[in-house]
């Protein structure tokens, strides 16, 4: 079976400076994969390079076998590779339901709009309660739910989530983790960026460690990773001593 996402030799950045270089990763057709590592080491840039929201990039990206590394962002969305960005405020002066309906923008998404809306409102009952509220009035957790809901309205064949639980309470984190597990159980492959190792471990089958703009390690679920090793990855070997 074709992998959902195959990335090879992907580099990119801003102005003359590469933030990430020579990234290679794969996400299987119904797999959950994590990207973790310290802040400011290029995890978000990798997602931006894949969704073509980063202007300067090179390398190959295949989505279900189709090359998308030269495609424009809207073509990538139309193909079903959906990027849910970090701390997305979505559209502050739009109502929740209006936002969700609007998010079904591409023809494929529009065709499935009604059923996807039901799905999102069932997955996040809080959004259903607040469907006439403006997005700017939502709390941090609700905004994150809206952001993921918007991603689902795009009729994803794969989701890329950038720190979906950033700044949330443990209770809300659990709620979102469950929602993400539900989405993935529906057969949608997921690539999730996280800093919280415990959280990402509970969520994914496999993960990549991103350090200084490169993938330096791949960790399977069965590989036991102990605390010291993670500390070593984050802070260098000296930290474990």
């Amino acid at each position: 079976m074709t992998d959902a996402l195959e990335v090879d030799g992907l580099s990119g950045g801003y102005d003359d400076y590469d933030v990430v270089s020579n990234i290679g990763l794969t996400v299987g057709a119904s797999e959950r994969v994590g990207l973790f590592g310290p802040n400011g080491h290029g995890k978000t840039t990798i997602l931006n390079a894949i969704s073509a929201t980063l202007a300067r990039r090179r390398g190959t990206v295949r989505f279900f076998g189709q090359p998308v590394d030269r495609a424009r962002p809207q073509a990538i969305v139309a193909a079903g590779l959906i990027h849910v960005p970090q701390a997305n405020t979505v559209f502050p002066d739009m109502e929740i339901q209006e936002t969700l309906e609007l998010a079904a923008w591409t023809p494929r998404a529009r065709a499935a709009r009604a059923e996807n809306l039901d799905r999102v409102l069932a997955l996040f009952p809080r959004l259903a309660e607040r469907r006439r509220q403006l997005a700017r009035t939502l709390s941090g957790g609700e905004r994150q739910m809206l952001s993921i809901g918007v991603g689902l309205m795009c009729a994803p064949r794969m989701l890329m989530l950038d720190e979906p639980t950033l700044g949330l309470s443990p209770k809300l984190k659990d709620e979102l983790a469950q929602a993400i597990a539900t989405i993935s159980a529906g057969g949608i492959p997921i690539l999730v960026v996280e800093q919280d190792v415990a959280f990402v471990l509970s969520l994914v089958d496999r993960m990549y460690f991103v350090n200084h703009g490169a993938i330096t390690r791949e960790i399977g679920r069965r590989d036991a990773v102990d605390h010291d090793e993670i500390m070593a990855m984050y802070f260098g070997a000296g930290a474990t001593a």
């Binding site: 969704s51 990027h83 979505v90 559209f91 998010a103």
Partner: peptide
């Protein structure tokens, strides 16, 4: 940015 990511 968000508009671009829903395919607009």
């Amino acid at each position: 940015q968000a508009a671009q990511l829903i395919g607009i």
